[in-house]
Nucleic acid binder design. Structure first.
Lengths: 118, 118
DNA sequence: CGGTATCCTCATTGATACTG
DNA sequence: CAGTATCAATGAGGATACCG
């Protein structure tokens, strides 16, 4: 149960848990990707890309590499004729559920979609 | 009590509360600044800069402008001989407390400082 | 004290195309 | 399906200096 601890550097001289957390999931698409994986664990690359909506394959690929490297996301190759890959959250990734949920809830309560079309 | 709602655009076609929230507080220093203001409301510019630790005056200034523009931070000029300014959170800014707290708590539980000096 | 003004560099993104 | 390659554009961030 996610009792591994990641070593994370911090700008400045003092270590700050917020800065450290932000360095892990503070990238533009990370919270959304994690949210989608929380909602539906084990998604394929293209499924995920559709779910995230707006992300390019390049950036999704980079983001997943980054999340995997940080131990938040697990990548499993399910060998078939055409390659099949499943992305899912690690225990550590799943432990972010409260964080992502609080982001989502705050947004739902305090924000609203901007009208940008006629 | 913070029942104003901000209109926020979103990448992609679907509006997503997480992406929207991230567009507000997803900049590198925003969560930390908000955290410091939650801890000690009404700080001066230089006080804040020391509290944040590692941020340059330029970036702090830009960040505060951004947060003010978004209605999360309030800037009050307390006129003295030398100019005095107090930064504090708006109601909307204060409403981020659970979000920032969850970031901080997660970091405390799952991360640890990296040793980077001898 | 509370910032701006430069200048510069690196990181991130977007668009597009291509591959096994 | 699951990506990688390339290139161009943007912009966030750092260092430093300066001002009322």
């Amino acid at each position: 149960m996610a009792d591994q601890r990641l070593s994370v550097e911090c700008a400045g001289n003092d270590w700050c848990s917020i800065t450290a957390t932000a360095s892990l999931i503070g990238k533009k698409w990370h919270p959304v990707i994690i949210h989608r994986l929380l909602r539906t664990n084990a998604l394929g690359f293209n499924e995920l890309q559709e779910d995230v909506d707006g992300i390019s394959s390049k950036v999704l690929s980079e983001s997943l590499d980054d999340l995997e490297e940080k131990g938040l996301v697990d990548r499993q190759v399910v060998q078939d004729k055409p390659v099949r890959v499943r992305y899912s959250l690690t225990d550590l990734g799943e432990s972010l559920e409260p964080v992502v949920r609080s982001l989502a809830e705050w947004g739902e309560q305090h924000l609203e979609p901007a009208e940008n079309l006629v």
